[in-house]
Each structure stands twice: as C-alpha cells, then as structure tokens.
Design a protein around this nucleic acid. Structure first.
Lengths: 206, 206
DNA sequence: CTGGCGGTTGACCGGTCGGTCTACTACCCT
DNA sequence: AGGGTAGTAGACCGACCGGTCAACCGCCAG
C-alpha cells in the first residue's frame, strides 16, 4: 500500500491525528490503524507513546522551520514585510489543513504545549526548545529591521518573544473561531503594533 | 467535611483539576473523589462530563470577569495603565495557582480551547462567547483610550482582538517556560507594541 | 544450509474510561 | 401518618487505554 517505511508512516500519521484531535484523544491503536500496522510494530520502533511524540515533535519542527519559517523570512524583501509574509504562510497552512470535521487545527506545538506541559516534563522541555529556536529566528529578522532603520532602538530578543506570543495567540483565535483568515488579519494589525502607528487599522468612518 | 452543596463542590473541584492537568486527563471518578462524592451523585447533577464542563466554564468566566477583568480595567486610572494592570493581575493569579507538580497552569479557557475545540462543538461554542465577551470588554477600554487621545485613530475592535491574542500568547509562554513573571514582562512590551515607540524596551547598551 | 536478526503478528494484561442502574435514605408537603 | 422526591450509595457495563509477550517470517551473512 504505502511503502514509506513503517517508522515514518507512524510518525506522520501520529502527527496528523494529534494535530486534528489532541494528544490524549489519539490512542496508540488509532495511530497503528492509520499506519496499517499492528501494535507490536509500534513498540518495535518506539518505546512508548511519549517517545514517538518526542520524535514527531522533532520531525515536525524540522519541516516547519525548513518549509514555512525560513521561506517566509527569506531575505528577498525588507524585514518587516517578511514578518507579514510569515502570518500569511501560517494562515495558508491552517486553511489547507482544515478538515470538514473539526475545522482549524491550530499550531501543533501550541496545542501540545497547553495540553501536556503540566503533565509530561519531557514533552514540555522539547517544546520549550522549539519555541526558543523559533524566537531566535524571529529575533534575527527583527535585529535586521532595527539595523536597517525600520525599528530603531528595538530590543530584538524582547520583541521576538512578544511577536511569538502574538503569533501563537493569533493561531489560537483562528482555531476557536474556526477561521484561518483571522491570522492574516491579525498579521496586518501586528504590522501596526510592531511598527507604531503606520499601517494602523483605520477607525470606521463614523 | 465540606458543606457547600455537592453541585458547587463538583464544579469547583473539576475546574481546579482540569486547569492543573487537562480535560481529558481528568476522569469523572477523579472529580468525584475530589468532591467526596460517589458517581451516582455526579450524574444526578450533570448529565455528562461535557455538561459539567459547560457549567464550569460559565462559573469560571463569571469569576474571572468579576474578580480579575473588571477590577483591573476599573476606571480609577488612565485606560492604558489599566491594561498594564490587567497583565499584572493575570501574572499574580498564575503565580498563586502555581503548583509544585506541574507548574504554571495557564489560561483555563485557552487550555480547554486548544485541547477540545476540534472535538467538542458545544465546548468550542461556549468558549467562543467567553472570548468574544472578553474582547468586547477590552475594546471598551481601548475606545476610551482613543477618545482621551492616548491612541488616536484606533479601531478598538481590531485592536482588542489583537490585544486578546497577545494576552493568550503571553500566558501560553508563561506556561511553557513555567515562569509567571513572563506575563508581566510581556505586558510591558505590549505597552510598547500598542502604544508605538513609547515605553519600548531599550536595546541593551552595546 | 544455517544461523541470527530486523520486523511483524495477534493474543493478552490490568486498569481506567464515561456512563447506567437499582436500591436506599432523608426530608418536605399534604 | 403517608407519599413523593432530591440526593446518595455502590455495584456494574462494554469499550478502550498504554503496554507486553512469545511466536513467527523472510532476508542476508557465514
């Protein structure tokens, strides 16, 4: 049927399932079914559900970094436009992943973080490093914005943390309102927020 | 032992347990144990775990509105200071609720939203109205800020949505880094973000 | 031809899940 | 005094949970 190796099928299926539902809502059996594999094989490759999850986090982070984060922040435009492009890319991913049942899935890392970080220290710690790396990447772009004069006097690390919080919040709102376009709209508002009054949303004519 | 009525004990215990762990990690049995009650009583008051959860959302929202949101946004200070005070209040609540095992619990509504909104439409819808009411309250304060000249030309609804996303993101970061003080720090950065360059974090002397 | 071994199978484990049911108690209304 | 009813108790349900295990298969190296 599907001749990617079993390990990869397990990893990808688990990622899809957990993103669409949640960690605890997806059983080992369901992951095996999706991969067309018996439970014994699961435990041949992974010592536990937690171990598979840690591996899935690593694989997904690699994908996100290489296929979403880096392309959006690529240096072919001014720094602040790259950040706006990142919101657009995330909105596209969320719109594409949207399923008839369940709607907008949200950020897999954020979902897992809120669900599991008080219950599973290993998962929490892994997600913390993913978040830190993302923040660092954002900080680099913001530093460039400062150095090219777009955001004079900015502390890139503090601003990156704030921007990252804002992005996760935006994806959360998209999930709860089941509307991926919110992310793009909030990206435009961020332009205002980060940049000061430029690009500020106009008050409706009244 | 505890002569508040059973229904209230069930509600409050469930809220505490679910906030500290997660919806799916807390069983009906655990909720009954915490309330010192047998399962039969649980199902006398609530038709299902979902029904109890909906009631708990309502009760918690009422508490949060009356004891955190309204006091923080009370009109005894200029609008923008009230918003900074809101970050501080939330940071305090998170610090107080922090438990040895598990650490910062995060926003109960946000936690539940990310965990359950693709799996339980009734819960999603209830949380959506809570989020909308919170946004509306923020919008009122931001409108006042605009009208008093602190944020001229602002669209309060759009800005409130952005601010709300930012707050939820800040609480998420506090949870994943297990550090409630992050919320206060991000509140100060928000001052910068919302207000333009004023209060902007200084670049470290270099 | 014969081991060894990566990979797979499917039955099986104790425990917990959300939820049901019947019986019983305690109190209020008449 | 009698009857209804709100509340409680506790045994019970089938389904599923994460995880284990012994047996087996086919391939490749010796």
């Amino acid at each position: 049927m599907d001749d990617r190796d079993t390990r990869k099928r397990l990893l990808e299926g688990a990622t899809e399932l957990m993103t669409a539902r949640s960690y605890q809502a997806v059983g080992v059996q369901a992951i095996c079914d999706r991969a067309g594999v018996r439970k014994g094989s699961f435990y041949h490759f992974f010592s536990s559900k937690q171990a598979l999850t840690l591996a899935a986090i690593d694989a997904l982070w690699q994908w996100f970094r290489d296929r979403v984060l880096e392309p959006a922040l690529a240096a072919d435009r001014p720094p602040l436009e790259r950040i706006e492009r990142l919101f657009e890319s995330i909105a596209e991913v969320q719109a594409a992943r949207r399923s008839p049942e369940g709607g907008v899935a949200g950020c897999p890392f954020g979902n897992l973080a809120l669900e599991m970080s008080t219950q599973d220290e290993a998962i929490r710690a892994r997600l913390e490093t993913v978040f830190a790396e993302t923040e660092a990447r954002l900080a680099a772009t913001l530093a460039e914005a400062r150095d090219t004069g777009a955001l004079p006097g900015l502390d890139p690390a503090a601003a990156a943390r704030a921007l990252f919080a804002y992005i996760e919040g935006a994806v959360m709102l998209a999930k709860i309102h089941d509307d991926p376009t919110l992310i793009r709209e909030l990206g435009r508002t961020a332009r205002f927020a980060l940049l000061g009054r430029e690009g500020s949303p106009e008050a409706p004519a009244a």
